[in-house]
């Protein structure tokens, strides 16, 4: 996440645009300055630049979105290595497999990372991971969905592992053992005569 932020631009001053929009009409252009001749070139260059940037952002967003795949594969391998008996190693791996997707989905801090955005009519969580690639021209929805899907897959893998270890209450036995034995209505005593 830090990397993504570092790569992206933090701020930009658009001199051209600024001058263009703010230049008062009453100030005449200097002599020999042809606005119409130079303008298309500049605009073209900046548009190209912006497009390249957008493409780059989109590419990066996809990269970030696909990052959990590697993780997933590694986790799967580790889980296979750990086996299905409950011991220190397998429990450690399972819990880390559960923790990673959760923390990835959660981000670092809640207030900062989650923003509710109006996007094509539906409410959507914006992940902090994709904050740097926020751009009106870049559609980050698809990478976001992929990222979420992959992390959820990781979570499911973790839960599946937890289940194979028998640590999830999915059997009748898990619910029955905590029930107290039923009380008896009748009471009978007696036996051999005391002697």
């Amino acid at each position: 996440m830090e990397k993504g932020k570092g790569l992206a631009r933090r701020w930009a001053v658009e001199f051209a645009e600024n001058s263009y929009s703010s230049s008062p009409v009453d100030v005449p252009d200097p002599m020999g300055f042809s606005r119409s001749s130079s303008d298309p070139d500049d605009a073209n260059a900046s548009r190209q630049k912006k497009e390249a940037e957008a493409a780059w952002k989109a590419q990066k967003a996809w990269e970030v979105a696909q990052a959990p795949v590697k993780n997933l594969l590694m986790m799967g391998f580790m889980m296979w290595m750990a086996g299905s008996t409950v011991h220190l190693f397998s429990i450690g791996i399972t819990f880390s497999a559960l923790w990673q997707p959760i923390s990835a989905l959660q981000g670092v801090g809640k207030v900062k990372t989650f923003k509710v955005l109006q996007h094509s009519g539906m409410t959507m969580f914006l992940l902090a991971v994709f904050e740097p690639y926020k751009d009106p021209r870049v559609d980050t929805l698809a990478p976001k969905l992929l990222f979420i899907a992959l992390n959820l897959a990781g979570l499911v893998l973790g839960i599946w592992k937890l289940n194979t270890l028998g640590l999830l209450p999915t059997h009748a036995s898990d619910w029955v053992s905590s029930l107290p034995p039923a009380s008896e209505v009748e009471y009978a005593g007696g036996g051999l005569p005391v002697h």
């Binding site: 028998g166 059997h171 009748a172 036995s173 898990d174 029955v176 053992s177 905590s178 029930l179 107290p180 034995p181 039923a182």
Partner: peptide, 17 residues
């Protein structure tokens, strides 16, 4: 403590207590 006896494969048998 419990009326259930958990046998292999998480199966349950109920004790006659």
């Amino acid at each position: 403590h419990t009326q259930a006896k958990i046998i292999a494969d998480q199966d349950v048998m109920y004790k006659y207590i």
